[in-house]
C-alpha cells in the first residue's frame, strides 16, 4: 500500500524535506524556459521597467492582483512613456487586448517544486497573464508553496474565482517534427520578479 504522506518520494512535483523552496522554484522555472530575479521592495518598479524595456514592449496592461502596487507601477511606467492600461478596463475590447505587448500581473501562489505561478480569474483574469507576448509576474516570496499537494490543499481558500490556472514558463509546442517552439498562444517571454516583501506602497 502506498502512503500519501511520502508523496515527495514518488512525485517530482513535491519538495523534498529541507529543500530550499526559492532555489528550487527558480531552477524549475528556468528549466521550463522562464526567468526570474529576487528583488527588495525598493527595486520592484525598476526591475519591471527594465524587463519591459528589454522586451521592446510599449503597450502594457496591469492586472488587479497587483493590489496597492498597481497605481505605483502604472505611474512609474507612464513617466517612462509606456502606454499603460488596467487589464480589467480593456478586457472586453478585443482589439485592445490584441494590441498588448506585455502584461504585468501578481499571483495567488507559486509552486516551488514545479516553478509554476498560480493566477485566478478574480485577479489576473482568465487571460491577463496569457494574451501578450511578454508576461511579467510579481510573486511575493510569502506566496511560495512547496509542491502540488500543498497547492491543492490551499486552493479552496485562495479566492481564485471561476478559474484557477497554473502556468509554468512560456507557451510551447513540439508538434512540428518534435522541434520545441516557444510562444504559441501564450507568452514567449515569462519573467518572474520574486519580491521579498508585500505588494503595497
Amino acid at each position: 500500500m502506498s502512503d500519501r504522506t511520502q508523496l515527495w518520494r514518488m512525485a517530482p512535483t513535491e519538495l523534498a524535506p529541507h529543500e530550499d523552496a526559492l532555489t528550487r522554484f527558480q531552477a524549475e522555472l528556468e528549466r521550463a524556459g522562464g526567468s526570474s530575479v529576487s528583488v527588495g521592495p525598493g527595486e520592484l518598479v525598476g526591475e519591471i521597467t527594465a524587463t519591459l524595456a528589454a522586451a521592446g514592449a510599449h503597450r502594457i496592461a496591469l492586472t488587479a492582483d497587483l493590489g496597492d502596487a498597481r497605481p505605483v507601477i502604472a505611474q512609474a511606467l507612464e513617466i517612462a512613456r509606456y502606454d499603460v492600461v488596467d487589464y480589467d478596463a480593456i478586457a472586453d475590447d478585443r482589439a485592445a487586448v490584441r494590441d498588448l505587448d506585455a502584461t504585468v500581473t501578481g499571483c495567488l501562489a507559486a509552486v516551488a517544486a514545479t516553478g509554476s505561478i498560480v493566477t485566478g480569474a478574480t485577479g489576473a483574469g482568465r487571460a491577463g497573464a496569457l494574451v501578450a507576448p511578454t508576461h511579467v509576474c510579481v510573486v511575493e516570496t510569502r506566496r511560495l508553496v512547496d509542491g502540488l499537494a500543498s497547492l491543492m490543499r490551499l486552493a479552496p481558500r485562495l479566492g481564485a474565482g471561476s478559474m484557477m490556472a497554473l502556468q509554468t514558463g512560456p507557451s510551447r509546442t513540439a508538434d512540428i517534427e518534435k522541434t520545441l517552439i516557444v510562444g504559441v498562444h501564450g507568452p514567449k517571454r515569462v519573467h518572474v520578479v520574486l519580491l521579498d516583501g508585500v505588494l503595497a506602497d
Binding site: 517544486a113 471561476s162 478559474m163 490556472a165 502556468q167 513540439a174
Partner: peptide
C-alpha cells in the same frame, strides 16, 4: 504530464469552476 510528454508539469493547467463570476474581468 509525466507519462504524456515527460514534463514535470505542462505549461498550462486550467481549473475551471464556472462561468465568469461577479467582478471578474473576462471569461
Amino acid at each position: 504530464t509525466g507519462a504524456g510528454t515527460g514534463q514535470l508539469i505542462t505549461s498550462y493547467v486550467s481549473m475551471l469552476s464556472g462561468p465568469r463570476g461577479e467582478g471578474e474581468p473576462d471569461g
